[in-house]
Design a protein around this nucleic acid. Sequence first.
DNA 1: CTGAAAGCGCTTACAG
DNA 2: CTGAAAGCGCTTACAG
Lengths: 345, 345
Amino acid sequence: MPSERPTSRDVARLAGVSRTTVSLVLNNVPDVHISPETRQRVLEAAQQLGYYPDASARRLVRGKTHTIALVWHRGPDRLYRDAFLPGLLQGLTGAARQYGYHVLFRPIEADEPDDAYVELARGRHTDGLILSGPRSDDDALIHLYQDQFPLVLHGQLPETDIPSVDVDNVQGAGAAVEHLLRLGHRRIGMITNAPLAYTASQQRLEGYRRALEGWGLPYDDTLVRYGNFDEESGLRAMESLLALDPPPTAVFVASDMVAIGALRALREHNLRVPEGIALVGFDNIAAARFITPALTTVHVPAFGLGWAAAELLIRLIEGDRPAETQVRLETELIVRESCGAKHSV
Amino acid sequence: MPSERPTSRDVARLAGVSRTTVSLVLNNVPDVHISPETRQRVLEAAQQLGYYPDASARRLVRGKTHTIALVWHRGPDRLYRDAFLPGLLQGLTGAARQYGYHVLFRPIEADEPDDAYVELARGRHTDGLILSGPRSDDDALIHLYQDQFPLVLHGQLPETDIPSVDVDNVQGAGAAVEHLLRLGHRRIGMITNAPLAYTASQQRLEGYRRALEGWGLPYDDTLVRYGNFDEESGLRAMESLLALDPPPTAVFVASDMVAIGALRALREHNLRVPEGIALVGFDNIAAARFITPALTTVHVPAFGLGWAAAELLIRLIEGDRPAETQVRLETELIVRESCGAKHSV
DNA sequence: CTGAAAGCGCTTACAG
DNA sequence: CTGAAAGCGCTTACAG
């Protein structure tokens, strides 16, 4: 930038007013009467000089950055979560824009301490934080919360009441299994998305269990296997399920990525989907509609989650205590080919 | 945050020194001798109070934000570019972190003016800008460049020498077609990724032409069709190519998304891939390895592009004139099933 | 309706 | 080796 960057002083001089007036006019401060002529002169002077108020000075004097940050922890579920990043960011920036906020993106890499984001908050780089992939042993997080720093979790941290935004996993899984039940399946297996240490994993399993019980079917854990985010884990889990006698006629795989691995196992066993065995996934990743057969799955609204997280956070920042700080969004069952509904219904 | 947020004054008081000394110690200013005892006292005081320097004050006094921004224009190629966002951001933040910079993400939505990002620069919210999806009729961009505001384009804008980072499209397309030639194909069609108004599209077509000519084959535009980012366009383009007599034995589709549409057209015509017709894509989107047949394609290094863009931009910001401001990264051919190499070689 | 002054919380010449 | 002072560029009570 040219060093002759204009300041409010230059605008004041050119318009023949004080800096106070310049600020009042440019910020459109209400309840202050300034003659239309003066107002006009200031606006023209600013325009003519190409004046833009300096953000750093404004931040300092106002004590606000008008910025929120998305903290993105790189866990073992990294690739899995990456699939949601574009949608999440779009929702997040959409809401932020509506309130006049900027968005900082801050990944925490594997070689950084988990609480490397703290400086962002304590050093006042941002007015609030959205944390994706938080860990329950994160003391720094608890401290920030205790210090009333505005915080929203993407996902859930059991045993805290930190504001959070997530999908209703129980409902989503329930809808998937319900769908298979309606199609006539009675021996339905499940492969989880991840180990049970992950809350989402527990909840999806719970949805499976409840759907079964809702239809008067017993929950049978010999029909359950544990995935671990990736295809490989899905392949193995499905192999193991196929070793059952009889094998299930349908399987709910609580992750599309894992389902893709499961699909490969089925192909290797020359089992056709959905004729030989029906499959329903979870997440609705971009690839779900392109694979063969196209995957019936549970859509996770990344955009909506991003929007809700940003909106909740900004409310907290601006001090209007929202009635509900635990936001749970509904999922949507997307029926494609792998469940067999297209043929049997 | 509690209102009793400590300032450098508090640290100075507790350590029994001046604010100058606090600043000198905390910033580790070189060539200034401060007794180890004093240094220690300051550090302890800061620690004890939980002191973090205020970012806004620092920015103001230093005249630097230590922030770079990624401007993400929502064009018709939005979904296409979204596929690269996670990788791009990871590379970008990786380099930024190495230099101590933060990253602002700023999408420009369809209902905003194309130059809505200007305030970010002029208002000093950021020290530099990376623009993804720039348009050649963007006057504001030219003005910023003329005013020496640090700028890097992701992609290319012909007829300017604005620093930019991109993939070598000619080389990438050439490698794809070369691969088909080696497999024995002599009648090779092409479907572009987008209309020729897009530089990348022109360049990929150029790579196709050169590869053909390198093997002494004539460039024949009756074998070329134009895609438009999405599957639908690929489906139509392939239909049109199949109407040829004889149809090509192989097609280079300069976009995986478009290739997925082309694949569908082939399926509808009961043409097996690669036996009936061979296909090579471009981009290596996440879905490429999951579709059937797995797509042979040209990998675009999103991470590397992000890293290079951030590094180049930060160099420009910090004033060390880089030797090369037009960075072109190499692509990599990923051989999977759709080209037939696995069978014929 | 408008202006002079203080102050946000730092850093950095400049003295001593 | 350390401190008092100025200043970054704004906004905002407070007078007039």
